[in-house]
Write a protein that binds this DNA or RNA. Structure first.
Lengths: 336, 336
DNA sequence: CTGTTAGCGCGTTCAC
DNA sequence: GTGAACGCGCTAACAG
């Protein structure tokens, strides 16, 4: 692996000059520029990014923390962030936090030790104080899906309550009055907010909330099945089931079918997130679209603008509104 | 951000001693070790990985190239590799190549410039010569899903032909004789091999291969729909459809249903890969399991063993065998 | 066991 | 326009 020194020798110029043509900031005469380029090609020279970073105190890389590396939801997020940043010549270092505080901390500390210029965090488990302490240490962070009052301008969030509201309201508008709900884990903010939206829609329609019609899941498919079974054995008259994410909706669909129900004739099911496979399901899932890819882009734009001083052609929005996606799993309530 | 120098001053020891307690390789007395730790805590010191790398010529990071950051297939692969390597204290830098030679090269060169200790590559588009030239430059690479004769010990591959064979054979065993096929793009090795397996099974059963019953797709869901429609309009008597991946199988299912066919009564459908959503589909997809997570783990193990000289508790296997996963989308051919 | 001294490969002043 | 010299933060001999 050739070094800048070897290039300078081969080109018969000084090491500083080579550095100049690499970075293209200072003026270098055309003739020497050519000589240097020729030498670089001949030696197959590639700048050592590590050394560049150490010298310039800039890594041109941004750290990204997601909960999981698999799954469509985070896949969409990673994908949009990576492509936007890569177009700008920046690079992304991805880590997974697995929704555990300790692992999230480790991941963040790894990103810090790599001296990323900024961190885009989807941190679910770590405390607010910890996040704030990062800022105190001059770590540039931007949060996705987490709302911290004192860090508002660094938070990009979805209006989860609105989402929950839209889902249940859609069921109500189809005439449903007995509506069950499978929520996410209560310790997660977004799960609480989505549930709050559900209750809000119920209240607005003068339907009283019945805790027997609510099951707490953990966002996994299996809990959709389990939830359906538990709910059904306690109450067999609900005609619609709203789920806090698409995975659980899918599980519920499977369980419902195994119990001989057809969808949406016997039971309407509504999901949340609109992940890719929602449209693969049968019937195609009616769900609430979570614009996670756009939120990722927004985070990337924030970094480009605030950290790298690049001009961007969007305004920074911090609150995203979800929308209902009407497909086939929600139907009108049956007469009689 | 405190430096090692500040720590050494605060602890009243030399800079080298601090380095020793950080790396824990040389012996340091308990007392000074304590002093150093106290100083590090007080200053909130975090080693600068960039500087460590430059000095030690070791980054403790391995580069990973996948085609896409989204999608269950690569998600599983990234996930297994990351968790295995992280457990070993190594870190993963992930990049996407988008199945384009130019982008793959850029991604690889980025990983090289970051001086990753090794590269795990799922390179689809880049040439064999390019890959070989990497080795000539002392870049340690290990390939997933790519078989290069002169690099065999660095290739971890799936027996795709066997997979294609198993899929079609399963259909034949259910009595099907008119079997259509939607393949992946012919320029990809794996697509060719899967198709070869299909033909092999056909031949073994004395069914002649009919090119009118074969459609070339690009591994995307939409091409499953398109493929079904094209195949159907040319021939409406086939009773089974084998698809080269699950996405296309899903698309085909949708299209078949839109054409009034029920699955598997009117048409059996078989997929390939066994990605997560295959079991969410309705009916649940019969498919060929692609042990991509295990292959990823194997690659990680190879790196741990060959690059980091760690002892691993598996033998390195380079050829993985796929297996049929029987679910509900394949049924016996209808009498009459 | 501990301190001193060179670099690692490069960016960045300063002079010329 | 170009070169010499220093420093980024740390590891790795080499002495002691």
């Amino acid at each position: 692996m050739a070094t800048i020194y070897e290039v300078s020798k081969a080109a018969g110029v000084s090491l500083a000059t080579v550095s100049r043509v690499i970075n293209g900031n200072a003026r270098v005469s055309e003739r020497t520029k050519e000589k240097v380029h020729k030498a670089m090609d001949a030696l197959g020279y590639k700048p050592n990014a590590i050394a560049q970073s150490l010298a310039s105190n800039r890594t041109n890389s941004v750290g990204l923390l997601v909960s999981e590396l698999h799954g469509s939801f985070f896949g969409d997020m990673m994908s949009s962030i990576e492509s936007m940043l890569r177009d700008a010549g920046k690079h992304v270092v991805i880590t997974a936090g697995h929704s555990e505080a300790e692992k999230e901390k480790q991941a963040i500390e790894f990103l810090i030790s790599r001296r990323c210029d900024a961190l885009i965090l989807n941190a679910e488990a770590v405390s607010e104080d910890y996040l704030k302490s990062l800022l105190d240490n001059n770590i540039e962070i931007i949060l996705i899906n987490r709302d911290i009052e004192s860090l508002q301008e660094r938070c990009i969030v979805l209006d989860n309550q609105l989402g929950g509201y839209l889902a249940t309201k859609a069921a109500i508008e189809q005439g449903h009055t007995e509506i069950a709900y499978i929520s996410g884990p209560h310790f997660k903010e977004d799960a609480q907010q989505r549930l709050a939206g559900h209750k809000q829609a119920l209240k607005e329609a003068n339907i009283s909330y019945d805790s027997e019609l609510c099951f707490e899941g953990g966002y996994h498919e299996s809990e959709g099945q389990e939830g359906f079974n538990v709910l059904r054995s306690a109450n067999d008259s609900f005609t619609a089931l709203v789920c806090a994410n698409d995975e659980m909706a899918s599980g519920a669909m499977t369980a419902a079918r195994e119990n001989g129900l057809s969808i949406p004739e016997d039971l309407s099911i509504i999901g949340f997130d609109n992940v890719l496979f929602a449209r693969y399901l049968y019937p195609k899932l009616t769900t609430v679209d979570n614009p996670i890819a756009k939120m990722g882009e927004m985070a990337a734009n924030w970094v480009l603008s605030n950290i790298y001083q690049q001009k961007i052609n969007t305004e920074i929005t911090r609150l995203f509104k979800p929308e209902l996606v009407v497909r086939d799993s929600l139907g009108a309530v049956r007469a009689g």
